[in-house]
């Protein structure tokens, strides 16, 4: 008998609790700043970009809806397809190189070097320097007159004329890839190094006692245990590389004869420099399927391996 009124009273008090203490109300206010930021600076520009791709907007003129006309035009445009090819070539070769060299560097840094922390700090430098700054440095390194590489090779007597780094399509492609690799290695190396350090030393000792040599330690212990980290690192690396703009813009502006034009630089050139906002937006939107494919690939690649599942430690 007594318990019923007591329960009713509790309910009554809780419904009378001030609004400021309600969980839903509070969580709304806590999430609002983040939601506003995302909507204003991410969703709106993305939506606007997609919308612009369906219009004939130019700088200073709003433009009207023209359906898929921009895309139909691009479909017939050889330069656009060249930029798609360039972007894929750039992304795939730079990512592979970054992975191979980054892993190699990480393995070296994981050894007990005398001044390990110094080397680790040094390795981060390319990553820390602003891209535009390092791009300008590379611009000088690749300069047709003053290139230090040409000079050094000539001094050594290996070549007899200066290398035309950025003037020749093949050289230019290789040069921008090399610059991107230089810049991207630290991210890969440091992330993989962090992954390497999570592998318990006792596993290596156990494998050594089991009879594994150095290569077998790498093949059967390091590599399989590093796979999850490799997957996530390379996903990010591919996304960064695919959307790269600054390096190309400073080094070649897409030249010579569009040989280094990436989708991002072409989009900028057509949309901003050329004033064809609609067409530029369409090129940018055309990158989305590639990026989604990369994300989906990593999503499935990143799924926890069977050995990672099950009870905790």
């Amino acid at each position: 008998m007594t318990s019923i009124p007591a329960a009713a009273e509790t309910r009554a008090t809780s419904s009378r609790a001030p609004l400021s203490e309600s969980k839903g109300f509070l969580s709304f206010w806590f999430m609002l700043p983040a939601a506003v930021l995302l909507l204003v600076f991410l969703t709106y520009p993305l939506g606007l970009g997609v919308w612009l791709g369906f219009t004939d907007a130019r700088i200073g003129r709003p433009g009207i809806f023209i359906g898929l006309e921009n895309y139909e035009y691009l479909w017939e445009d050889g330069v656009f397809w060249l930029s798609v090819f360039n972007t894929l070539l750039y992304t795939i070769s730079a990512s592979l190189l970054k992975f191979a060299l980054g892993l190699w560097l990480a393995l070296i840094l994981n050894e007990n070097l005398p001044i390990k922390s110094f080397f680790r700090a040094i390795v981060l430098l390319p990553w820390v320097v602003p891209t535009v700054l390092s791009a300008i440095a590379f611009w000088w390194i690749y300069d047709s007159q003053f290139s230090i590489i040409s000079w050094a090779l000539m001094e050594m007597g290996l070549i007899d004329h200066r290398i035309n780094f950025l003037g020749d399509p093949t050289n230019a492609r290789a040069s921008v890839i090399a610059a991107n690799v230089w810049r991207g290695i630290p991210f890969v190396a440091i992330t993989l190094l962090a992954g390497l350090q999570t592998i318990p030393q006792s596993l290596y000792e156990a494998a050594t006692l089991d009879g594994a040599g150095r290569w077998q330690l790498f093949r059967y212990v390091t590599l399989p245990l590093l796979t999850p980290i490799i997957a996530i690192t390379m996903t990010f690396s591919v996304l960064f590389t695919f959307t790269d703009f600054q390096l190309i813009y400073v080094l070649t502006r897409g030249g010579p004869v569009n040989a280094t034009h990436l989708m991002a630089t072409l989009s900028f050139q057509r949309g901003i420099s050329g004033g064809q906002l609609g067409e530029g937006a369409a090129i940018a939107v055309a990158m989305i399927p590639f990026l989604l494919a990369a994300i989906l690939f990593s999503y499935f690649g990143l799924q926890r391996r069977r050995w990672q599942q099950g009870g905790g430690d």
């Binding site: 318990p200 006792s202 596993l203 000792e205 156990a206 006692l209 089991d210 399989p224 050995w307 990672q308």
Partner: peptide, 20 residues
């Protein structure tokens, strides 16, 4: 070398290969 000593060791944290 350890592998030539014909010994086997059981570690405190077992050191089982998690991916096998």
């Amino acid at each position: 070398a350890p592998k030539e000593r014909d010994i086997a060791m059981v570690f405190q944290n077992y050191a089982l290969y998690p991916h096998m």
